[in-house]
Design a protein around this nucleic acid. Sequence first.
DNA 1: AATCTGAATTTTGTATACATTTTATGAATT
DNA 2: AATTCATAAAATGTATACAAAATTCAGATT
Lengths: 223, 223
Amino acid sequence: MNAPIPIATLAHVATARLRDMIIEGRIAPGARLNERVLTEKLQVSRTPLREAFKILAGEGLVELLPQRGAVVAIVDAATVSATYELMADLEGLAGELAAERIQPEELAEIRALQFDMLASHARRDLPGYFRANMQIHNKINAAARNPVLTETYLRLNQRIYSTRYRSNLSNERWDQAIAEHTEILRLLEARDGPALRTLLTQHLLNKRATILASLEAGQAAAA
Amino acid sequence: MNAPIPIATLAHVATARLRDMIIEGRIAPGARLNERVLTEKLQVSRTPLREAFKILAGEGLVELLPQRGAVVAIVDAATVSATYELMADLEGLAGELAAERIQPEELAEIRALQFDMLASHARRDLPGYFRANMQIHNKINAAARNPVLTETYLRLNQRIYSTRYRSNLSNERWDQAIAEHTEILRLLEARDGPALRTLLTQHLLNKRATILASLEAGQAAAA
DNA sequence: AATCTGAATTTTGTATACATTTTATGAATT
DNA sequence: AATTCATAAAATGTATACAAAATTCAGATT
């Protein structure tokens, strides 16, 4: 009757903690990951820590430099742009598939999340909006019923996650995003796959433009 | 004047060797990766070997089971189907972007590869055909000028690579694939992105159907 | 002052020893 | 015969010791 609880190894614990630190930007992009420093901070020996580096390198969050350690992957504007170009297409695919495969309960859940999002928008609650927004996109992705797509999507999303915190969302853009989401839900309910694909792709390309503008503004401020 | 040759670490050497063994199917899907056995075969200690497991897990070739080691990832029919569904879309995206961004020299190289492929087809040289075919798709992908797309594409391709060896290509399907490639080149030369996307997506979905049929036939033979 | 040089230091890479968990084995029990 | 349980064996997980490479820094040289 003992539940076969999969005890996490120290390598996985270290991986999870490091991942959060990188995604939240608490370790700067390009920063060197010194083993001695991190063993002290994470309270694990070098063996599981180095295994964590390898796992995170596979996720694209860390870059391994032979004989010279590991550094946090640098996500420059070109990478962000290319990543969104791809993600826009994946979102479109997910939407098209979801329109064909989504179940009534899933659609109901997305409808509920849509109201959560509207509530956050009305309160000017940006974190709440981000959260509802991400959940909606994740639900659409799950409704596409393609685990390889979902895995790829989450992986790419993770790599550019930190850029979202930095992005300045104007009121106009925020209102526009809300309008786009209303239309997304309508097309999903109408099971109009092709139209949903087009709209979701454009929705993501709009998001890309917003974020790239913020990045450039940040660059200008730094200089 | 000394070239800064990046000396590969044993972890990377072991990773490369293991990767080949898995991709070529020399270690069966689902097989346990015993550390003692592999340290003897690869002549490295457990430390770099275990790091190699982590890297390959990130590539989706290996699955890590906490406290129970690593196994070669199982690629079942559902996974192959889902992977091709995604790759079909990525190929379409690559084609659409390539139609806009390809350079004359790249187009010339693809034209040459197309003739290589026709030559292999005429000689009924299947390995030569596979090679030219893969090079063409890789060139189209490179011409899309999106490194994140290319990385994602190669990663997915690698995971299902071994299924290609097993696939039985009928003469009709082979002829059809050649015809599709002729049309692909024509649309690329005409810079017709949308049409090229549609065709490439369908081309990959046709490839999926062929491979899934072979897999099922193999299943039936095994039972 | 800037550059070069070469130890001293630090850091990464690897092997191995020890700890813990899982798996195999085999006798005892039903 | 099948099952249970205790023990042994093997495997994985982790820490540490040692090796090799990169980096730092003081002093010499220009």
